[in-house]
Computed example of a mutant assay.
Amino acid sequence: MSLQIGQTILAARRAKGLTQEALAGMIGVTAAAVSKWETASSYPDITLLPPLARALGLTTDELLAFQTAPTAEELRILSDRLRCIFDEQGFDAGCTAADDLLREYPTCGSLKLTVGSLYYHYIASALNNAADATQTAEDISIRCLSLFEQGEQQCTETGEKLMAKSLRINMLTMLGRYEEAEALIDSLPQKLIVDPEQLRLGLHLAQDRLEEAAQLAHRALLTHLGETSTALMSLTTVSRRCGDFAAAHLYVQTYRALDALFGTDSSNGLLLEIMLAQDEHDNARTLDLFEQYIEAQLSRTLNYCDNPYFSDVQTQVPSANELNEMRQLTLRAIEEDERYDPIRQEPRFQAALNRLKTAISSGR
């Protein structure tokens, strides 16, 4: 972290109409020393900070540009900068940059939530380059959990505290620490009977604030679609484990119908159907679905900017590098999954897998 004190001294000195010699004389140093400070060749001695601040009409905090935490806008800019580093330079470089910021703002809970979320978002990059993917995933999850715990303690806004707790629950569940996760769930406040956003939507409609009403409605639609898809996925898993394949087929088909209706990513629904076909030992069906799944992976963009339902509420579009990291993780999962063994030597399986490998190697 570099101090910007030289720029502050230069701007404040000029604002007060002082020459370097005049400022130097006020605090008992040479004009050359002031020049070095302003060009960042050196920093003032710590004992000179109070008289220097008084001479320039600043507080020492202003002189040092001290902040306990970045503003919301600064945090957004920092997050975007970190995303670029993770995306373009890799996971290790992103971690180094994130750690520098955490040292700069050690008590900023919002930053810790941001960094922990980025670590998890880019976990595919770390796993693709790991000698032991299982251990790496556990190490990153533990790191994220620590950041979310600190974030919850340091955040002041109720919404952020709840978000931190939710993230902690997800991490604990992934780590198999189920009792701790359940205790945290029990500590969450009861869900409000009325959603304030739905009330706000009605208000905006009554006020004819149509653009704001449309954005709230789109956001609600995206939220509820996600919740519905998660519930259908869970019901499919329960039905498969219970051997109730008729129910599992119903849930999978409903899941896929929602993807088709709203124009969202089809690969997860296809993967659910592949697992169901594997449970039923239907190799022909598994092979057909596998080819469709690979094609869905290759055409996947997760960009809904032209989607009439979600174009105005998508906050982040994955980059080409992110999509390629996801494909690499998919390839690793396929190669390590013994459930594909019955069709692994099929020419169609190999051809589909080679299309995925080619796309990965070309970075498309």
Rank of each mutant, 00 (worst) to 15 (best):
K112N: 01
T47R: 09
L276D: 01
H218S: 10
T236I: 00
S141A: 13
A130E: 11
L175W: 03
V34W: 08
D282K: 12
E73S: 12
I123R: 13
C144S: 08
P106K: 02
A137V: 01
V194R: 14
F91Q: 04
I142D: 07
P50M: 01
L49T: 11
C144N: 04
S2M: 11
D132W: 05
F86H: 04
V252C: 12
S42M: 14
L188I: 03
S35H: 08
A126F: 11
A246Y: 07
F86D: 05
G151Q: 08
L271H: 01
N354A: 13
L222K: 09
T230L: 12
G25F: 07
D259I: 11
A126V: 14
D186V: 14
Q253L: 01
P44R: 09
Q7V: 02
I85N: 00
R103F: 04
N354C: 11
P50H: 00
Q345I: 08
I360H: 14
E335H: 02
Y178P: 00
L210K: 15
G363C: 04
L162T: 07
R332D: 05
I169V: 15
Q207H: 15
T228F: 14
D312Q: 08
K16S: 13
L199K: 13
A11S: 14
E138G: 01
G17I: 12
A352Q: 04
L49H: 08
M275H: 07
C144G: 05
F91P: 03
A24F: 02
V34M: 02
E104Y: 13
V115P: 04
T156S: 07
L102T: 06
S234Y: 05
L222D: 08
T71P: 03
R143H: 13
A164F: 14
L203V: 09
D312V: 09
E273W: 00
L147N: 12
D244V: 05
T59L: 00
S234P: 00
A31M: 05
S266F: 06
S239H: 07
T96C: 01
E160K: 15
Q20T: 03
A130D: 10
D195G: 13
L261E: 12
D312K: 03
A137G: 08
L232V: 02
E322Y: 15
E291M: 10
E291G: 09
G243Y: 03
C108N: 11
M163C: 12
E322S: 14
D259L: 09
P189V: 02
M163E: 13
N324G: 06
I334M: 04
T30C: 00
A72V: 09
Q316S: 14
A97K: 01
L270M: 08
T30L: 01
Q278I: 10
